[in-house]
Design a protein around this nucleic acid. Structure first.
Lengths: 233, 233
DNA sequence: ACAGCTTTGTGAAAGCGTGCACGAGGGCTC
DNA sequence: GAGCCCTCGTGCACGCTTTCACAAAGCTGT
């Protein structure tokens, strides 16, 4: 309990990479690895070693020069920084194809984000069970959020319903939203929103595909999320 | 057939926004809107108007000063630039929870990315039908890719199998990969990879949640993918 | 105890992306 | 047909991110 209060402001780009480091570190720990260098971690994460060191330096000076980082200790520090020392139950709004898939996908609960509720507007959906949770009406959202102390909402509605869903989540007291609907949503200041759009991702790939096929100049470098080389090999 | 050959190099950040503009423009067109200004488009996309103009300027000078952009024409131009003038069939590798959800999710085909095949390694999965497509063995990947002229592969395997899946896709001739598995994959240079990781997104939200709750200083600005205000209101 | 090897932590520079501000250019009105 | 108004297109400056390069620091072996 030393200087853990003086939180530096961690750059957004770094925050986005910490979960990746965390997963790799956890895997390494499970494999019995006790120590790791920035070089090794960088290799596994597909990034530059200097970037790893700078990213980790925002958490504090937890490495040992000449040696590397203690895996277990670093796992704990990253988890603490990301707020993963306790579960964050989520509520899913929209019980259609996507909502059912998300609720049924085990990955949520395993990683500390159990599905605390699923709501929909359609009477035909209410009462059905998806992912082990009974679907309830969206009017009960406020009560669900309050009783389970939920702060994260997941929008899995069709695009046109996304704004209404967002408004309902905000009204219910949710302060972070993960939006899977193909629509831009507006929220009051102070609410965090992240967006995942499958069609957008595919269209971005399409751009680079098309350019490769149609462009005279070869220049097929500069791949979006691409890594030169990753693990394996 | 004027100067459409001299392709400028479009910045990655712009490429990532073009699909968003495209969706909005298409919606507007369907609503009977024939003309739109950068200001209006920016409002709907939740971005700065200057950014919209700069983004669109990479496609060419397709606006009319004092008036705005012709919606229909712009839709066509953006589609052409993104390579969306024809369908891009995709092959999904992994027929588990996630793969089934993706194959069953109608959003793919609707937006020009029909599911051209689903493969898996597990004998129990082979032969089952998901999303209207019969699951085949991963050994048939090369044949599927070749016969349907597929260049985009979607990885929907568990994390540990992701690298094998990527290798199989590359060997089969796929040149773009959308990776849903929670793992960093390595690919040869020239292959495009994009990654969607639900857990990572939630953990990023967790960071900002936790900081809001634990931090003394209020500073609850600087939200990751957040917009100050969007549509509505 | 000291020399040498290794790896961290970080200053400084280069590269990108964003947003302002304004000139250029086209339509509309009278 | 001339002037006004509106909106695009873009030069420029700023801030964030990445990368390089190196000094600081710890471990090991003699």
């Amino acid at each position: 309990m030393a200087g853990q209060r003086t939180r530096r402001r961690i750059p957004e780009a770094t925050v986005a990479r910490l979960p990746v480091y965390l997963r790799i570190l956890t895997e390494q720990f499970d494999d019995g690895v006790t120590n790791i260098s920035s070089e090794e971690l960088a290799e596994l994460a597909g990034v530059n070693a200097a970037k790893v060191r700078k990213d980790l330096s925002y958490l504090g000076s937890y490495g040992t020069r000449g040696v590397g980082y203690d895996v277990e200790f670093l796992v704990y520090q990253v988890q603490r920084e990301l707020g993963l020392t306790h579960d964050w139950p989520v509520v899913i709004i929209g019980a259609g194809n996507l909502g059912q898939a998300l609720a049924g996908y085990g990955g949520f609960g395993e990683r500390g984000f159990p599905v605390g509720g699923v709501v929909d507007v359609a009477p035909s959906k209410i009462g059905t069970v998806v992912g082990g949770v009974r679907v309830r009406h969206v009017d009960e959202l406020g009560q669900i959020v309050a009783s389970k102390n939920i702060s994260i909402g997941v929008i899995a509605t069709p695009g046109p319903a996304a704004q209404d869903a967002a408004d309902a989540l905000v009204a219910a007291g949710v302060t972070s939203i993960l939006n899977f609907a193909p629509a831009v949503i507006g929220v009051p200041a102070g609410i965090s929103v992240r967006k995942v759009d499958l069609a957008v991702e595919l269209q971005i790939l399409s751009y680079y595909e098309q350019r490769r096929a149609g462009g005279q100049q070869a220049g097929l470098r500069a791949v979006p999320g691409g890594r030169g080389r990753g693990a394996s090999a």
